[in-house]
Amino acid sequence: MPLIVEDIAKRFGDHVALDGVSLQARQGEFLALLGPSGSGKTTLLRVLAGLERPDRGAVSFGGEDLLAMDARARRIGMVFQHYALFRHMSVAQNIAFGLEVRPAKARPKPSEIRKRVERLLELVQLQGLGGRYPAQLSGGQRQRVALARALAIEPRMLLLDEPFGALDARVRRDLRAWLRQIHDETGLTTIFVTHDQEEAMDLADRVAILRDGRLEQVDTPERIYEAPASAFVFGFVGEGVQLPGEVTDGVLSVAGWRSPAPAGTPPGAVTVSFRTESADMLPATADGLAARILTLSRRGGSSRVTCEIGGQTFTLQAPKSLIAPGVEVRLAPHAVIIHPK
């Protein structure tokens, strides 16, 4: 395990940004830190980069104590949300900066620096744009320069803080695939902060979900989606129905519907969740959760309906059958996820 984060805590005044976070990443792993704003994910990234000093805890990388080094010595590549490109330097000068500021004996020869800049420009697909200035580039191009600049110092680890946050949706999707490709080519351990669950699930080997400075779950995207560790994780990574329920004597009752609880479920108040796409919509005579259709909008092969279940409103996909506002139906989920309250 090259990156080991142990029990990191950080507070700003009265605000607790990180509250005992422990986490590990394998060499070459692509790990996403996912969470709503204020969950502490950026603070954690800044602690790794050396831009924030934690109140307690330890961080080691390949057995080396990172907290004992200042940001300058860590050799960690950082890509910032708003690029932080040097506005008065050309693209090539930006990329070369980290090499040129090395002490004279560790500095590559000018010709070597030039060659490396060329290679990086090629890697980020900006050949021929080395003479441009940041102001002359599009947002997506600027972010690629920022990545090349971070890679130029041959970092031991790559940190990205909402790198696509300021870009529009289409550019984001293109860059996403390309970033994964760069990661696979360089084999760098990469930590990536985002508040966009789709981005995290799409891109990362594992996703760490943070909430209020605590880790909720660290797992593969599939496990996070299918076996969320908490009701919060369920709601954060996908659409679904979540209702309060109760387990007594092995029977789950939720919004007036009773069904056998999965084996081993402890009794008591619970939160019942299921994905909307894994529930069948049946006529009112069938067994299932009672739902009443409120509105529907037809879109291609299926319809999106809003319906009221147990006093709450949800949006879900429905087959293109004879449904209309006001109709009573039954929902039969294939699998429910139960979290104790």
């Binding site: 932080a84 040097f86 506005r87 500021v101 971070a150 130029a152």
Partner: peptide
């Protein structure tokens, strides 16, 4: 932002 980026790239205070 730019100063912080420079530091993560290994630049010293005067640089």
């Amino acid at each position: 932002d730019e100063e912080i980026a420079a530091i993560t790239l290994g630049a010293g205070p005067w640089t």
